[in-house]
Each structure stands twice: as structure tokens, then as C-alpha cells.
Amino acid sequence: MSNAHGGATKDTANGPPVRTQGLTKIFYDENRGEVRAVDRVDLTCQRGEILGLLGANGAGKTTTLRMLSTVLQPTAGRAWVMGHEVRSEPERVRASLGFYSASTALYPKITPRETLRFFARMNRYPSRQVDDRVEELVHRFKIEDYADTRVEKLSSGMKQKVSIARTVVHDPPVLIFDEPTVALDVLNAIELRQFISRLRGEGKAILFSTHIMSEAEQLCDRIAIIHHGEILATGTLDELREATGLHYLEEIFVHYAQVDDPAQAAEEQLR
């Protein structure tokens, strides 16, 4: 099987586009010693599916996604994106995914059009089709009016559109959204969620991390509850309701995380 990147993906017809097996990340901290940020995480994400990673701040969501995007190397375990192993084929993994988070900002001194062209080229989009693809996205995201204005002069809403276009410019089969709505106002957050839903319709495998319960309820096909680096439960919302006998996702989360005193738990999480 090949994709727009001219063979950057392996044949994954028999397997999910994203798969992790015992994925573990241990940090060494001068004060705290060994910190197990992610602990033996097993996940899969299928085509046309949004898998939500639901957890409190510091639960291990970002670390998991950073390992999948090869920004971090796993301490143990393995992970595959479109059949490529994150440790042995990091460039192919990165070519197969688009990564969006609050910490992946745009270059302020270049224009949206230059931004899209740069990311398409660097992410191995066929060079002859780069210009067409850039114009397609400029049109699709309605950024024609400011496509040649420097990013530093754009409003946050405009930047968000460019940032999403940047994430999908190389047409990756896998998309990772790490707490994407965290810095957005309500309208921009709704627009972003609608866009992610459309991407699901296009058959993309999407990993979506959030600590906002309502967001996970609305958007995700399956939800993985992560706490202290461990996946405590994975399933559809209905499956989770059935398994716990609870209705609201917030209650389900508290049930799995075994949090008796949320205030104390939040303090522990911060430590």
C-alpha cells in the first residue's frame, strides 16, 4: 500500500494504523528520582476512528503522544504508526502523521503560504504536487485573504486555521491532537472539533488527548482513561457506562481513577 508520500507507509491492511505495546517512559528527576510517566500502555487506533486519551494534567497523555510522534524515545515497549516502528523508523513515522498541540506553534516571520509549502516539502509530500496542495488548503480553510501576510500579524483564530492546515498539509493517514482546544475560545474550539470530525469521515486515524470530559464525550469513538501513566480502561462511552454502571463520563473517570478526594488527587498530580 502506498500513500501520497510515495510509499512512506507499510501495508497495514491487517493491522491498525496506530498500535502500542507495553509503551513505557521513565524520566530521571534530580529531586524525585525515577518517574514512571507512562507505564506499559497498550493502545490501538483504527482508520476513521477518534481515540480519546482522557486524563488529568500530568497523567501521561502528552508523553504518550510524544513517543508516538518520535519526539521522545520509549524507555520500554514498542509503538507502530502505519506499520513503522517509532524507534527504528522515526522519519517514516513522522511522515505518516500530523501532530498538533499548543506547543507546536507557527513560525512568525513567514506567511501561511510559505508555512504550508515548507511543511509539505519537509514531510515528503510529492514535490510536483506541493503548490496544488497548498492552494487547495488555502481555499479549503478560507485563508486566501491573509495567505501572504506574515503569521506574526494574524489573529489567534487565523493562526489556528493555518496551524491545522499545517498539520494536514502532507495528507497524513494518522493525526495526533494533543489538548488542541486548551488555549482556544468557545467558537474556535467548536470549529476545531467539527474539523476533526470531518477528518474522521475522510478515514483518518485520530488520537485526541483532552482533560475536558464533555469534549471526549462529544468527539471520541473510543476513550482510553489514563491515570498516573497507566491506561485504566478503554472502550466506547456505552461500554464504559455498562462496565461501571455510571452514566456521566466524569463519574466514570473518578471511578476508574479511584479518586476519593479530587482536591487531594489534584495536589498529588501537581507534585
Partner: peptide
């Protein structure tokens, strides 16, 4: 400082 470092690290290049 511009938060573009991680963006750069997700590029499909060594």
C-alpha cells in the same frame, strides 16, 4: 521561545 521547536522536531527529517 517561539514554541516552534517541537513543531520542527515533528518534521519527517533526521
Amino acid at each position: 521561545e517561539r514554541s516552534t521547536w517541537e513543531t520542527l522536531m515533528t518534521l519527517a527529517v533526521p
